[in-house]
Design a protein around this nucleic acid. Sequence first.
DNA 1: ACCAATCTCTATAGACTTGGTAGGTTTTTG
DNA 2: CAAAAACCTACCAAGTCTATAGAGATTGGT
Lengths: 153, 153
Amino acid sequence: MISKKTKYALIALGYLAEHSTGEPILISELAKEGNIPKKFLEAILVALRKGGVLKSKIGKGGGYMLALPPASITIGKVVSILEGGFALVECLNDNVKAVCEECGDPACCGIRLVMSDVKQAIDSVLGSTTLADMVERSDNARQKKSKIMDFSI
Amino acid sequence: MISKKTKYALIALGYLAEHSTGEPILISELAKEGNIPKKFLEAILVALRKGGVLKSKIGKGGGYMLALPPASITIGKVVSILEGGFALVECLNDNVKAVCEECGDPACCGIRLVMSDVKQAIDSVLGSTTLADMVERSDNARQKKSKIMDFSI
DNA sequence: ACCAATCTCTATAGACTTGGTAGGTTTTTG
DNA sequence: CAAAAACCTACCAAGTCTATAGAGATTGGT
């Protein structure tokens, strides 16, 4: 299960992707529009900035902007920043090079072998889906729906 | 990250798959061989039994056996029993039909659309990998390694 | 009938994680 | 300098995860 942190991050990033005009957007606006507790969002945005996905401007007239075009920000990157990757067992974590206590020999651990496959499947999806894709799919679904509504009137 | 519960379950099931002679195997043996706290394992085995993966025999001479051949038990089944499925957002959970508070309209939620893809990728791997596969791959890796060792002597 | 070996159930406790809050600090604009 | 903003540190409540304890139920052998 992805954490609320990640969900909030994706909501905020989605909003930024759709409403960026070059001008920075306030935390307060992101919090209000995304229905996200402001203080909680603050921490999330800082993490995203440190992760290179956002840039900020301090002081009056400041706020947050995407550091890259939406098509260059993968969902995988966001998840990786906020959850430290999507590892399924310690020994498959990106950053940490820990070995699970359970599997004496990582190379021969059946669980590890299976989970490695799963991880690859996840990474493949998350690594190839961008913020732009996410927003676009959401828009498409909304349009499709409103079309159906039109018919029914 | 899969929980220790699931990891222990897979270890125990792997052991059962490799050592089943028709005779039930004791919790104590599974705990000892798998390096698993016995009492903790107890609860796990009960869950697996209720999930239809194991069957047990109570009383003297009792113990646990696989309820199905290893090739008929998917890793996905095990994960599903112990973690309630591998959902990534509430609204994609197998059992529960909850809607995330965040996405007013599930059909149009970009996050949901993306995570649905991820879930499908995960389920596809976990649903097509069986206990037998896991054990076999582990054995193969071990044999390969021991062969290399032989050469180096 | 009894005893020992087993699984089964309920309750509990400590550590850790998650979601969220509070309050003060620094930076920038005008 | 004052106001607007992001930034930082610390904290807390609630829940989850891992693990343990102990009593109860079932069976097989004698």
